[in-house]
């Protein structure tokens, strides 16, 4: 390749890909480099080959050039398009969002069923135990054996109630952590979607 061919290809490659001043500067720079190599005793073809392929130089120059900032008009148009698509696609993404929210709510309700059951069981044990213990003296005059069994059952129920209360408190703490994690995850997903839309 001759020096003129090289410069021609370089100039045409740079045109439109880098600013005109930058293209002129690069052409002069590589021209000077070729001339320097020729002065050092290299042949024209050798010097051109030494500098490199003009296409590679064009790609390198274009790649290092900062991207032009989007014009306000194109950003506005893109935003309008996004909102249009968003509104038109509402029946699809809206129902999916509603389904996801319902699933999240169901998961949360299932989560709270466990401590709710624990609370119910402990309440039943404690109430039953208290009634049994309080009512047992009524049976004393009628039947000693019955009164003792009732009193014993009342104590057993109170003890079991205490154990279930402790377990329920522990489970509630775990559920509260799960509840927070679930909703933080949900809100994070929502925030990510907003960021994508914006």
């Amino acid at each position: 390749m001759t020096r003129q061919d090289f410069l021609l290809r370089l100039r045409s490659g740079l045109a439109g890909n880098v600013p005109a001043e930058e293209a002129a500067r690069l052409v002069d720079y590589y021209d000077e480099m070729i001339l320097d190599l020729m002065e050092d005793g290299r042949s024209e073809a050798d010097a051109v080959a030494q500098v490199g392929d003009p296409n590679d130089l064009v790609y390198a120059a274009a790649g290092t050039r900062p991207l032009p900032a989007p014009s306000p008009t194109s950003t506005l148009t893109r935003r309008r398009w996004r909102w249009t698509l968003l509104i038109l696609g509402a029946p699809l993404w809206g129902s999916l969002l509603l389904a996801a929210a319902c699933i999240l709510l169901s998961a949360d309700l299932i989560l709270w069923c466990v401590p709710l059951t624990g609370a119910g069981v402990s309440f039943g044990f404690l109430l039953g135990g208290a009634i049994s213990v309080i009512a047992s003296p009524l049976a004393v005059s009628g039947a000693w054996a019955l009164a003792l069994v009732e009193l014993g059952a009342g104590f057993i129920l109170l003890g079991l109630g205490m154990i279930v209360v402790w377990l329920t408190v522990q489970i509630t703490r775990i559920c509260w952590r799960g509840h927070r994690a679930l909703f933080q995850w949900g809100l994070a997903q929502l925030g990510r979607s907003k960021a994508v839309i914006a």
């Binding site: 003792l148 069994v149 009193l151 003890g159 154990i163 402790w166």
Partner: peptide, 23 residues
């Protein structure tokens, strides 16, 4: 908490057993 609960269950079991033994 567990000691109290266990004591209640133990005492209750003993009292109930005495009552059952009576019959």
């Amino acid at each position: 908490w567990f000691t109290t609960a266990g004591t209640l269950i133990a005492i209750g079991t003993l009292i109930a057993l005495v009552g059952l033994a009576l019959v």
